[in-house]
Computed example of a mutant assay.
Amino acid sequence: MSKISVAFFGAAVLYALLGMSLGMFMGATEDFTLAPVHAHINLLGWATLALMGTFYGLAGAQAPARLAWTNFAVSNLGNLISLPLLAIMLKGNKAYVPIMVGGEVLLVLGMAIFAVAVLSVARKPAMA
């Protein structure tokens, strides 16, 4: 398996553990204010990054390496900015919303980079 695929899966596992921990915390405290954060951690962290890692693993040598690493960096940076700020916003502090929007833009950019990687692999002749 490629290093980029392992990186995506490694990050995905960390997000899954964080999402599960937040879910357990919310259940224990019976305070579900952060349920949207829990959902976003699981979707944007665990599911999205694991799917990207799967694609890069299946694409193998046909995957554009530099683009894949850029995808990894941009997607994780978007998560690391937007997810904690979403929690802060849901707890009542709206001061960081403009910064959170920047993180959201990075998440969309990460998906756009992934789309370019997918198209790049799709255009290459299949290896036998």
Rank of each mutant, 00 (worst) to 15 (best):
A117I: 09
G27M: 07
L90E: 13
G92I: 13
A11W: 00
W69V: 12
M89H: 15
T48D: 00
A39S: 09
L43M: 15
M24H: 07
L83K: 02
G57H: 14
H38P: 02
G10K: 04
L58N: 11
V6H: 08
T48H: 01
S75I: 03
P98V: 08
L44Y: 02
I41Q: 00
F8Y: 07
G23I: 01
M52W: 02
V105T: 07
L49M: 13
K3F: 09
N42D: 07
Q62T: 15
G78T: 07
A12G: 02
A128F: 11
L34T: 02
K94M: 13
A12W: 02
A35Y: 10
A115F: 05
Q62K: 15
I41D: 00
G110A: 06
G78A: 08
A95K: 04
G19R: 01
A61M: 08
L86F: 15
T33I: 09
A39E: 05
F25D: 11
G92E: 13
A87T: 05
Y15Q: 00
V13G: 01
A63T: 05
T70M: 13
L80T: 10
A50G: 10
Q62L: 15
S2T: 10
L49G: 05
A7C: 07
L86D: 14
G92H: 10
L86I: 15
K124F: 11
V105D: 04
P36H: 02
G27Q: 10
L77G: 04
D31F: 03
N42Q: 11
A95N: 04
T70A: 15
T70W: 14
A28H: 08
M111I: 12
A95W: 01
L80F: 13
L14T: 02
G10D: 07
G45M: 02
A117Q: 14
T33E: 09
F9Y: 06
G102H: 14
G45I: 01
W46D: 00
Y96E: 10
A65R: 14
L17Q: 01
N42S: 09
G27N: 12
V118W: 03
F8G: 03
G27V: 10
P98T: 09
G57M: 07
A39L: 07
L22K: 04
P64R: 12
S75Y: 02
T29R: 14
L83Q: 04
E30N: 14
L18F: 01
F8P: 03
L34E: 04
D31K: 09
I99N: 11
V13E: 01
A16R: 00
L18T: 01
S5H: 12
R123W: 13
N93K: 07
A63Y: 00
L58R: 15
I88P: 03
L14M: 06
T29N: 10
A128S: 15
N42H: 06
H38C: 05
M24W: 04
P64A: 13
S120K: 08
L51A: 11
G92M: 12
M100D: 09
N76R: 09
A47M: 09
A68R: 08
V101Y: 11
G110V: 06
I41T: 00
V6N: 06
A115H: 06
L106A: 07
A117M: 12
L18W: 00
D31N: 14
H40A: 04
A73H: 03
V74R: 00
N42R: 03
S82Q: 13
A63E: 03
T54R: 12
A87F: 05
N71L: 08
